[in-house]
Simulated assay, not measured.
Amino acid sequence: MVKRVTGLGFAAVARVTDRYWVACAIDDSIQYGLAPGDKVDVATTICHEISQHKQPVIFGHASEHPVFATHPTPRLFGFESYISIPIIRANGEFFGTLCAVDRTPSAIETPEVLENLTLFSQLIAANLDMQDSLDLSQRELLDERETSRLRDQFIAVLGHDLRTPLSAIRMSADLIDSRVTERSTRKLVHAIQTSTQRMGLLIENVLDFARGRLGGGIPVRRTHVDDLQSELHRVIEEVRRSHPAASIQQSIDIPTAIDCDRVRVGQLLCNLLGNAVTHGDTHFPVTVRAAVEHNLLVISVTNQGQPIEPERLGLLFQPYTRSEKSGYGGGLGLGLYIAAEIVKGHGGSISVVSTAADGTCFKATLPLHGVPHLSDHDMAE
């Protein structure tokens, strides 16, 4: 475009430093002898002067020009017509020049030529600024990803290391519970057991979250399970012991065998039920239902109380999402996220509906016999 606008045979974008004129891009139809990457001593060029006064230089007939007829640069490089426009970055930094030359005279000293090449130089400067901004954003993104990766690794290591002392506390509490008879002492022991049980759940949630972030999702190992009902009953009783003030009603009817991860489905119910008894109105019971409907396992947990704001419903299954009313000790905000990941690992779906009339209901739907493997072609379609 520069050659077309000026009619000159050589055009270049150059980086101009204190020492060198460095060719960045060149279009040469007069075999001027320069290629991208070539360096020229900047003191021998007119661009050296442009870097100081930051003004365009343009002339069409050097040998007859009152200033450049005696200037050493046209004679050194053998050109008659010349135009060079400074490239100025948004921060005022001088980058280099957009220039064109030819060995023959040319009528280029017109406002149109100067205006067009000035616009071209501004476009180059804007592109350089945009590229720098993009590079900075990419570096910041990489730094943030690395920070996130290290944070997740730290969480995983911390959660793993907390298991050992917690197991010791649990075993000690169980041993004391088997030996004491005083009611007040047993009450304290039961408080310790309840707290360690809650701590264990928190640690497992943290570990699962870290595994999911570091390894592409929470692992789900599906097997043929005949006694899922007993696992769900066990979870409900465990939550009852941890929340003695809560009333839990249950309807568990799973008459068929299911291909699932028994432990993970129990964890799914534990997280949903724990969330319900924590945030529900204690004057009303929490209802747990599990049944097989249309070759699907459906698990739902419903509690009464203040409905969840519509704008928050879509955020509930994201990590670290907590109710503003939870306060200190309300959990890490990972339970529902992990529940959703467990459902996802089974190829199922999870949803929530919350109204003042019917309460808040979380429903997880899982296929009974797994999800068939999809080929890349099937996934593409």
Rank of each mutant, 00 (worst) to 15 (best):
S178N: 14
I192K: 03
S172V: 06
R179E: 07
M199Q: 12
V206N: 13
T185R: 01
A173P: 03
R179P: 01
M199Y: 13
S184F: 02
A191W: 12
S195L: 14
R198S: 14
A173H: 04
L207M: 14
L201T: 10
S178M: 08
I169V: 14
S178A: 14
V180S: 08
T185P: 00
I203A: 07
K187V: 02
V206Y: 08
A173K: 01
S172Q: 13
V189M: 02
N205P: 10
E204W: 11
S178V: 03
A191V: 07
S195F: 07
S178Y: 00
I192T: 08
S178L: 04
E182T: 11
I203N: 09
L201R: 11
S184C: 05
T185L: 03
E182V: 02
M199D: 13
L201S: 15
A168I: 05
R198A: 12
I176S: 03
L175N: 15
S195C: 07
R183V: 06
H190E: 06
L175C: 12
M199V: 10
I176M: 07
T194L: 08
A168M: 04
D177M: 00
S195Q: 10
N205C: 09
S184H: 04
V206R: 13
S167F: 07
T194S: 11
T196K: 08
H190N: 15
E182F: 00
V206E: 10
A191G: 14
R183N: 06
M171G: 06
L201E: 07
A168Q: 07
S172K: 07
Q193C: 10
T196P: 03
T196N: 13
R186T: 00
A173I: 02
N205E: 14
H190Q: 15
K187S: 13
L201I: 15
E182H: 06
M199N: 09
L202K: 15
K187I: 02
G200D: 10
V180C: 10
D174L: 07
K187T: 05
L175W: 11
R183H: 07
K187F: 05
R170G: 05
